[in-house]
Design a protein around this nucleic acid. Structure first.
Lengths: 202, 202
DNA sequence: CTCTGTGAAATTTTTCACAGCG
DNA sequence: CGCTGTGAAAAATTTCACAGAG
C-alpha cells in the first residue's frame, strides 16, 4: 500500500505519512509502497503493544462497567486484571469474568498483578484521591475519565478523556456551520460548503 | 486571576494563556488580571454553550447507557433528547427519564426535536451506517465512540473518541518510563526522573 | 516509471520580551 | 508597579519537491 493510499485512509497528507513512518526506519519499498502487516508489527512494537499491560479499572458505575465490558481493550492487547470500587455494596459483585474488589486492597492488587495502567471512572470528587492511591501503589500510567483535573508526580503518565469537552468542541463547529441546515437538493453534486472544518476529507 | 495563575492551573505557559484569550477580545485588566466569571461567560458564548444543543445517543449498550446517565452533559448545557437503538428488545425500554426509540424513527425524531449532535455508541460494524442515517436526518455534528473510522460529507463535523487508542498512547509512555518501578525513598525530595513526559507540570 | 525517504521551504504554534494601561 | 496585549523571535509541524532505489 502506498503512502498516498494510507494518507487517504487517514485523512492526511501523503508526505506526512512518509515522514512519520520514516521515524520508525525504512520499511517501505520504493516504487511499490509499504507492506501493511510489516508496518502493523513495527508500529505495535514501537508503541509497546507487544508487551502485556495489565489494566485496573477504578469505579464501577455505568462508565466503569462499560469500560470493563469494552471488547476493544482485549483486542489490542490490554488485559483488564482488576475492578476496584470503594462502595461496599459493589465489592463482591462482578462484571463479566472479574470480581469487584475493595479499593483498600489496591496496594496488594497492583503489586500481585503488576498493574501498569489505572483507569479512573469514579465521580469527580474522588478522582484525585484515587489517582494518588494508584500512584502510591506503583501504577505508572493513568487514564482519567472523571470530569476533574488531577495531577500526578513526574514520571507518571496521565491522560484525560473528557466527554463533555468533546461535545463542547462539536458545539463550537455546530455554531459556525456554513448553513444551519443544509437544505440542498439531494442529488446535487456537492454542497458549496467550504468553511472551518472539523471534518476530515470526503 | 492573572494569566500566570491560569497557566499554572492549566499546565501551560502564561504567554499562551494571554495570547489565546486575546482572540476573544480584551477582557483582562492590566496590573490586575482577568475576571474569572467574565471569562467563563465570554468563552461559553464563543463556544456556543449559551445555546441549547439537543443530543441524540444511538446505541444503548453499556457505553450508551453510561453516556445517557453521564451527568456532565446536562451540567454543561447539553440536553439529551433521544435514545435510539436498532434492537427491538431494547426499543420500548428506558434509561433514566428517556425511552429508547427505534432507529427507524430517526428522521422524525431529529426533525421534531431539532437534534444537532449525534453520539454513536454502537458496535463498529454499524457505525458508518448509523452515521449516514444521522447525516441524512440533518444532524450536523457527530461524536463517534465506536472503534471504527467513519466518514461524513463536507459541512458535517466529526470527532472520534477511541478508548483503546488512549490506552495505546499510555502504553507508549509506559514503555519509555525512566524507571520501570521508581523505587525511591518515600520522602525523598523528588525522583530524578526527567524524560519524555505525558504529564503536565508538578 | 513509480513511489520512498528526506533536505529544504512553508506554515503554524508557542514563547519571549516589552511598551504601555490601569 | 503589576500584569495585559501583542509584535517579533523561536520552535515545531507540515508540506513541497525531487534524487534515487527498486
Amino acid at each position: 500500500m502506498s503512502s498516498e493510499q494510507l494518507a487517504e485512509l487517514a485523512g492526511v497528507n501523503a508526505a506526512k505519512v512518509r515522514k512519520d513512518l520514516s521515524y520508525l526506519g525504512s520499511y517501505g519499498t520504493r516504487g511499490v509502497g509499504y507492506d501493511v502487516s510489516e508496518l502493523v508489527d513495527e508500529i505495535a512494537h514501537e508503541l509497546g503493544l507487544t508487551q502485556d499491560w495489565p489494566v485496573a479499572i477504578v469505579g464501577l458505575g455505568n462508565l466503569g462497567r462499560a469500560l470493563a465490558n469494552y471488547r476493544g481493550f482485549g483486542a489490542r492487547g490490554f488485559r483488564i486484571v482488576a475492578l476496584v470500587d470503594a462502595d461496599p455494596d459493589k465489592v463482591g459483585g462482578s462484571v463479566g469474568e472479574l470480581d469487584i474488589e475493595s479499593i483498600d486492597d489496591l496496594g496488594a492488587i497492583v503489586a500481585d498483578r503488576n498493574v501498569a495502567i489505572g483507569v479512573i471512572a469514579t465521580p469527580a470528587g474522588v478522582a484525585q484521591e484515587v489517582t494518588d492511591r494508584l500512584v502510591d501503589a506503583g501504577v505508572g500510567s493513568i487514564l482519567n475519565f472523571a470530569p476533574a483535573v488531577v495531577t500526578v508526580p513526574d514520571g507518571v503518565s496521565l491522560r484525560k478523556v473528557d466527554l463533555a469537552t468533546e461535545l463542547q468542541i462539536l458545539s463550537f463547529y455546530q455554531q459556525h456551520r456554513p448553513t444551519p441546515t443544509p437544505l440542498v437538493d439531494a442529488g446535487a453534486p456537492t454542497p458549496p460548503a467550504t468553511a472551518v472544518q472539523a471534518t476530515r476529507r470526503r
